[in-house]
Design a protein around this nucleic acid. Structure first.
Length: 900
RNA sequence: GGGGGAUUAGCUCAGUUGGCUAGAGCGUUAGACUGGCAGUCUAAAGGUCAGGGGUUCGACUCCCCUAUUCUCCA
């Protein structure tokens, strides 16, 4: 059976058991502060388990794209070294929401594996929760009884709370679970050690393939468990592992899920898979990571240097690193694997096909960027291991002593003998320059050096500690004022003010700042989402008016942020949104829709939204497009948007439209966005802009006033960013441009043709510059002649002192020019500005060499006369002082250095 | 969100306890050589040293702030 058939068999089986087959949720999670990526099949049903939401179906099954790289399940550094862990994997799952329970879950699980997929019953073991005295939980005898109907008792094993009791978090729904394990060892091995002794012992060939969770308790904040009225089933089966078992392989990577990819990698590297453990690991790492990165990008998560984007970047870099270190790749290579990945998975996951170009370009660009980072690191590494060259003679006495001192020689030798890369240097390479520590080790080993790993680890620990200290957020428990309030109702599409009450609140302390989170029974406040910022406004409780500084979402819960708490939290309140801010935000949001449509009209329908930020000042829009927008294209977009504004198109809002109907209207949906069955559709002219959107909009486009693009640029390969303004901000923009123009025109005495006026000015300027340069030359010649006449000759030295009235830069230039025209020059120039005196001493090179004169020494002596200090180089030095009266004395004193 | 680094000519980058009239390579322009092209040689133009403030006789260099960007951690 190939992998496509296996996946389909699972879905068909549960469909036959009256399950609704739902699509995979995006891998990238939004609106859940505890989670960056989907890490289990149940994530998209979290609100149902938490009781926040009713499920639409009682029975559901799907295959879910999952990514496990951060947080509790952090396998990243292990992936590739073993044969069954992955970053990105598919989780096959079936769910019952208050419908069937243990009996059916167990029976169907067994029927699918042994009846439909024909796995040898004798290879399978199951585990059951053994109970826990501390929790007062009994053994899951129910499950045992059901299992006994399918397999002999000696293959039903008991497991501890750690392995067989599943909890979502510190609080919330939980319950015992039953795992199905498969023993895929050879008959000879099975004869030596019975499989039951290896279950949950880390043997790569006796592995868990399916976990059936029976959710029957709710863990309260105090730690006690309460029986749930509605019991649920939540199962998850690792698709790649199932393929391994069914295809009779010993490694997930030997299945047809990975082999085609590994084959291409091996071909490109010119190394056979199976030749050597290190190169095998590298190929597995690349094959695994390729999938994770490609799916993440398809779901709209681009590599970046923060948060989820940074996790993706790190995965990609790990793949590049392995390819670089073990397979000899020196050029971007991962993006070349996209076609084979698409051939593999494109049919099941059409988002890969649709975004092929973007995925390829983004990966290529990231690879190239990282290879540059590596080459910088290699340079720094080489500079570090190369002993410093002996210093050329500097003229100081210190050098001679150093050359003769045995200790110095010794230290030089020590450095070579010790051959240790300092831990702090290795950490600096890693931390500041992004150079991976394992590459530092590898390169050190190649030249017979070692790395002080202890020092490196110390540095890393200190860094982690700093970050952790900073990120500490102390969240208190919710204080519930109204029990069973359910989800708050959002009324902000129609109202900006509502009479309501606080259902619960809590205190959150972060970095010494104390904030309060409120949940209202109903609220006009829009919570930050879909790129639109959260509403600001006020909570009015009796005589108190408390400022709401932001509104955010946790999953579907709308939370209002404030710096203080009303004195009587339980009384009725008025929730009032700041109207002015909301209006500006709505202007920008509707303008974004108009611009999105305009971009597709002007540039083509390949334009897809990749990110959006809308606040009261501006709008920012990232979209797919492969070239810089020309001035003309920008102008056309602006013109089109402004035309649509003037048409004053009425907003058509459909609050709850079946998604199929919305798509039929041509509504633009985003990859990586999770939509329910019913969606909100925002239309400005059915023939122009139809989008799925939860944000707040203008009643008619005329309110936007006007629209202006402020900047356009690239943010990643194939992604452009536009920033624009609308309404009042656009007014302000044009006003400032106009006043600039008026000022320029005023400066030029309001010429008839301003452009011509500026051109004339520029041409005139060029001519005048030429004339000035000529005059300067002439003046310099005259000045030099003048000074030459004043030169006094002592002992073969041309001695010249003068007080001049010039700025510092000109004095320096004059000194250099005189030096160039008068040989054997000893020059002292003095100036006086703002009650301060400045001296400059210039000596010809040959005077410095032959007569051992030093301008820096001389100037220090002269500076005493003007009560100041200074210094410089042997041939030119400057000094400043606060006593201009001493200038003449200083010039007189200079003679003393020539007449000896 | 926190730490570290970077920002110098159109591009890629040097600039070593603060003092060399800020340099190199590529590119640009002009001239010469060549029958033409490719090219070679010579010369020139091109810099608010990211922006602002401070310390100093003197700041590309040291300190502070801001912006942009890279990188590590959370």
């Amino acid at each position: 059976m190939n992998n496509t058939d296996i996946r389909q068999a699972f879905l068909n089986f549960f469909q036959s058991k009256e399950h609704a087959i739902v699509p995979s949720a995006p891998m990238v999670v939004k609106n859940d502060p505890t989670l960056m990526f989907t890490n289990a099949g149940m994530n998209q049903f979290k609100d149902i388990f938490l009781g926040n939401q009713e499920g639409k179906f009682k029975r559901v099954a799907d295959t879910q794209k999952c990514l496990r790289v951060s947080g509790k399940h952090n396998d990243l550094e292990e992936v590739g070294h073993d044969t069954y862990h992955h970053t990105m994997f598919e989780m096959l799952g079936n769910w019952s929401f208050g419908d069937y329970f243990k009996k059916e879950a167990i029976a169907w699980g067994w029927e699918l594996l042994t009846g439909v997929l024909k796995i040898d019953k004798n290879c399978l073991y199951v585990t059951v929760f053994e109970g826990d005295d501390k929790e007062g939980l009994a053994r899951d005898n129910e499950a045992i009884e059901f299992w006994k109907q399918h397999l002999p008792e000696e293959r039903i094993l008991l497991g501890s709370k750690k392995d067989n009791f599943w909890e979502m978090g510190d609080t919330g729904p939980c319950g015992p679970c039953s795992e199905i394990h498969a023993d895929i060892r050879s008959e000879a091995e099975k004869a030596k050690i019975p499989g039951r002794d290896l279950v949950n012992k880390g043997d790569p060939h006796v592995i868990e393939i399916w976990n059936l969770v029976f959710i029957q308790y709710n863990r309260m904040a105090g730690g006690q468990l309460v029986e749930l009225p509605a019991k649920h089933v939540d199962t998850g089966m690792g698709f790649e592992r199932l393929c391994m078992v069914l295809q009779g392989k010993k490694s997930n990577y030997d299945t047809d899920v990975f082999q085609p990819i590994i084959h291409v990698i091996a071909q490109k590297a010119g190394i056979k898979y199976g030749d050597e453990p290190t190169t095998d690991i590298a190929m597995r790492v690349i094959a695994d990571h390729l999938r994770a990165i490609a799916f993440a990008i398809a779901d709209g998560q681009l590599p970046s240097n923060v948060k989820a984007g940074y996790v993706i970047r790190r995965i990609l870099r790990r793949a590049v690193r392995y390819g670089y270190a073990f397979l000899g790749f020196r050029e971007p290579f991962i993006h070349d694997l996209i076609p084979v990945l698409i051939a593999q998975m494109g049919q099941v996951f059409p988002e890969l096909v649709a975004q092929k170009d973007l995925i390829t370009n983004v990966i290529r660009e990231e690879e190239a960027a990282f290879l540059r980072t590596l080459s910088t690191g290699i340079q720094r590494f080489n500079a570090y291991i190369t002993p410093p060259q002996p210093l050329p003679k500097k003229g100081g006495a210190g050098v001679e002593i150093a050359e003769a001192t045995p200790t110095d020689t010794l230290s030089c030798v020590t450095r070579h003998v010790s051959q240790v890369i300092d831990g702090s240097f290795a950490f600096e390479l890693y931390d500041t320059y992004g150079f991976p520590i394992d590459l530092t080790e590898l390169m050190a080993r190649e030249i017979g050096w070692t790395v002080d790993m202890e020092g490196f680890t110390t540095g890393l620990a200190a860094q982690k500690n700093r970050s952790r200290q900073d990120a500490i957020v102390d969240t208190s428990d919710w204080v519930t004022l109204v029990e069973d309030a359910g989800m708050p109702e959002f009324v902000g599409y129609d109202l900006l003010q509502a009479d309501t009450w606080i259902t619960k609140y809590r205190k959150v302390v972060s970095k010494g700042e104390e904030l309060f989170h409120f949940v209202f029974a109903q609220t006009p406040f829009y919570a930050e989402s879909g790129g639109q910022v959260g509403d600001k406004g006020w909570l009015i409780s009796g005589d108190e008016k408390i400022e709401i500084i932001n509104t955010i979402k946790e999953n579907e819960l709308i939370i209002h942020l404030s710096r203080s708490l009303p004195s009587v939290p339980s009384q009725k309140i008025i929730a009032r949104v700041n109207r002015e801010i909301r209006t500006n935000v709505a202007n920008n949001h509707s303008a974004t829709h108009l611009m999105h449509a305009a971009l597709r009209k002007v540039l083509g329908t390949h334009v897809e939204q990749k990110g959006s930020l809308v606040d009261e000042n501006r709008l920012r829009f990232d979209f797919t497009h492969f070239a810089k927008l020309s001035k003309d294209e920008i102008a056309r977009v602006e013109t089109l948007v402004n035309e649509k504004i003037r048409e004053n198109i009425q907003l058509k809002e459909a609050r709850s439209l079946p998604i199929a109907q919305a798509k039929a209207l041509g509504a633009m949906a985003l990859f990586g966005e999770k939509y329910g069955d019913h969606v909100r559709v925002i239309t400005f002219d059915p023939g122009y802009s139809v989008e799925l959107c939860g944000g707040t909009h203008v009643p008619a486009t005329g309110q936007i006033g006007q629209f202006k693009i402020i900047s356009e640029g690239a943010i990643a390969a194939g992604i452009r960013r536009i920033e624009a303004i609308s309404g009042k901000k656009a007014d302000e923009y044009w006003h400032s441009r106009e006043s600039l123009l008026t000022e320029i025109s005023d400066l030029l005495k309001n010429p008839k043709d301003l452009l011509k006026g500026v051109n004339n000015l520029l041409n005139e300027n060029v001519d005048l510059k030429k004339q000035v340069a000529e005059l300067d030359k002439l003046k310099a010649r005259q000045l030099k002649e003048e000074f030459a006449a004043q030169v006094k000759h002592y002992n073969g030295i041309n001695f010249l002192t003068a007080k001049v009235d010039l700025d510092a830069e000109t004095v320096k230039n004059l000194a250099h020019e005189l030096n160039a025209s008068i040989p054997d020059l000893f020059l002292v120039l003095a100036t006086e500005t703002d009650g301060k005196a400045t001296l400059t001493v210039m000596l010809s090179e040959n005077l410095v060499k032959e007569r051992k004169l030093n301008a820096a020494d001389i100037i220090r002596e002269l500076a005493k006369e003007i009560q100041g200090g200074g210094g410089g180089q042997p041939h030119i030095a400057t000094a400043g002082g606060k006593n201009p009266a001493g200038i003449m004395a200083a010039l007189e004193k200079a003679k003393g250095f020539v007449i000896t």
